[in-house]
Each structure stands twice: as structure tokens, then as C-alpha cells.
């Protein structure tokens, strides 16, 4: 598609640029401080570090409790991303493609975890899991994360679905494709970038999530952010700098991937 340059796409002035860069600096500063610290040595946070080494990273990878919580986080994030893709994808499909009574109400209901304060959601989920005797289980944690991921998936998938030309689906139907055939041969292939992007987002949201996880995870299902949080409380270890850096890089990587996917579309 040819892009048109509009009046709004003017080159920003020097002052505008300065303000923008100051904004970036303010946002990036904490991460930028953590990164050099992660290459420090010793048993305390040092900034700037006196000497550089990979000791902290080595410590992180050799400590079984760090590795275990990282694996838990990866597992939970992957599973809840998949689950919320399934639920959110179907919900978005229903909302965009069909007309039915109470559609607006259902949409608001499905998006509500985004609007309610996380701590309230966390408390509610804690109580539910208590009733279901699922506190401290991996699948309980996965379900809870899916609750907060689903709204994000729905929003992105709805936008993506609206971009898919209805005529393509009608054309496929008239040529003889069943509802399922249209979905698998036309709609899903066209939505692929959107599906990947919202899946990655859901993964990231789950991987970063700390409040809900803190409430509902048990000793054996401690996720990485929860482990970091409790580490701060008990033994302020400089390994945290290494973990934080790795987390930042992961988030950054996913965001770049999502941006690239969006461009592809």
C-alpha cells in the first residue's frame, strides 16, 4: 500500500525532540542503572560497579530455586497465553461477526478484569481458588493469569478481525467452504500476525504479573517475579540485577517482535 504524507507528519522541531528524549530517559533510567549493576561482583548492589564480571549471571543460572521459578514462569506464561488466545479469540470472533442480544454487556464483562484494580482481582481469585482448593497449584495460577490476559487478547483480536474483509469469507463460503473451512483456510491465516502478536502480549503480561501470582502461588509454584519480590524482603542479593536485566531483554525482544508483526500486516 502506498502511504500518504499528511500535514500531521511534519518533522518535529528541536524542542519537541528534546522533550521526547527527556521523557525516554526518565522512563529508561531505572533499567539503564540495573544493566551495569548486573555485571558487578560481590554481595552488594554497586553502582557504578568497581569491576565487571558475569558472576551474578553465573549465580542466577546455578541456583536451583532461581531456575525453578524461571521455568514455572515460562510454563505458566505459555499455558495462560494459549488459554487466553483460545478464549479471547473465540470471544472476539463472536463479538465481531455476530449480532445478538446483550452483546455490549458481554463485551464489557469480558473486558472488566482490565478495569477493576488488580489487587481486587487478585483477592477475588485468591478466594475462588481457596473454595476450589486450587491455591498453590500450577493450573490454578494459569487460570488466574488467563483472566487478566483475556481482555488484552480480545481487544487486539477484535481490531484484527475488523480488518479482515467480510467479502473474503463470503466468497469462500459461496465457493463451497463450510464455516470451519472458512475459519481455518481464510480467517485464521489472515489473522496470523494478530494471533501471534496477542499471544506474545498475553505471554508477557503473565510473565511480568506479580500481584495475583503473589496471592495465589504456593512454595512450589513460585513465579520469577514473586521470587524476586520475596528476595528483596529476605536477602537483598545483587543477583536481582542480573534477573532484572534478563527480564528487560525478554520484554524488549517480545515488543520488537510484536512491532515487526504489526508492520508485516
Amino acid at each position: 500500500m502506498a502511504r500518504q504524507t499528511t500535514i500531521e507528519e511534519r518533522v518535529p522541531s528541536a524542542a519537541t525532540r528534546l522533550i521526547a528524549w527527556l521523557g525516554y530517559a526518565f522512563l529508561l533510567m531505572p533499567s539503564l542503572v540495573v544493566l551495569p549493576m548486573s555485571f558487578g561482583t560481590g554481595t552488594e548492589f554497586d553502582f557504578p560497579p568497581k569491576s565487571f564480571s558475569l558472576d551474578l549471571y553465573r549465580e542466577y543460572f546455578s541456583e536451583p530455586s532461581w531456575v525453578a521459578s524461571t521455568l514455572t514462569s515460562l510454563q505458566v506464561a505459555a499455558a495462560s497465553a494459549a488459554l487466553s488466545l483460545l478464549i479471547g479469540g473465540l470471544a472476539a470472533y463472536g463479538i465481531v461477526r455476530y449480532q445478538f442480544r446483550g452483546k455490549k454487556l458481554l463485551t464489557i464483562f469480558l473486558l472488566s478484569p482490565m478495569l477493576v484494580p488488580t489487587i481486587v482481582v487478585a483477592l477475588a481469585l485468591y478466594l475462588y481458588l481457596g473454595i476450589a482448593r486450587a491455591t498453590g497449584t500450577t493450573w490454578g495460577l494459569i487460570l488466574c493469569h488467563a483472566v487478566v490476559c483475556v481482555p488484552y487478547v480480545i481487544v487486539t483480536m477484535m481490531a484484527g478481525l475488523r480488518q479482515v474483509d467480510r467479502n473474503l469469507e463470503i466468497a469462500a463460503t459461496i465457493m463451497g467452504a463450510s464455516w470451519f473451512g472458512v475459519l481455518t483456510r481464510v480467517t485464521i491465516p489472515l489473522l496470523r500476525p494478530t494471533i501471534l502478536a496477542s499471544g506474545l502480549f498475553a505471554f508477557l503480561i503473565s510473565f511480568d504479573e506479580v500481584v495475583i501470582s503473589f496471592f495465589v502461588s504456593g512454595v512450589r509454584t513460585q513465579t520469577l517475579p514473586v521470587k524476586m519480590y520475596s528476595t528483596i524482603h529476605w536477602e537483598i542479593s545483587p543477583v536481582l540485577a542480573a534477573v532484572s536485566s534478563l527480564l528487560t531483554i525478554l520484554s524488549l525482544g517480545i515488543c520488537i517482535l510484536v512491532a515487526a508483526l504489526q508492520k508485516e500486516r
Binding site: L168, M175, G176, L190
Partner: peptide, 29 residues
């Protein structure tokens, strides 16, 4: 239902599948 009527249709906006090649489009039915 529409998919069992054995019809063909041509649309104003072509409605070709953008994720398929021309040959795949024609082969679709």
C-alpha cells in the same frame, strides 16, 4: 446453506485471498 448451492460469485472489490498466490486462489474451490 450458501456453501452447498454450487454457485460462483465475482465481487466488486475482487475478494481474492491476499495470503494465497494467484494459482492457489483459483485452485481454492
Amino acid at each position: 446453506p450458501a456453501n452447498r448451492r454450487e454457485l460462483g460469485m465475482v465481487f466488486q472489490n475482487y475478494a481474492l485471498f491476499p495470503h494465497m498466490t494467484v494459482a492457489q486462489n483459483v485452485a481454492f474451490p
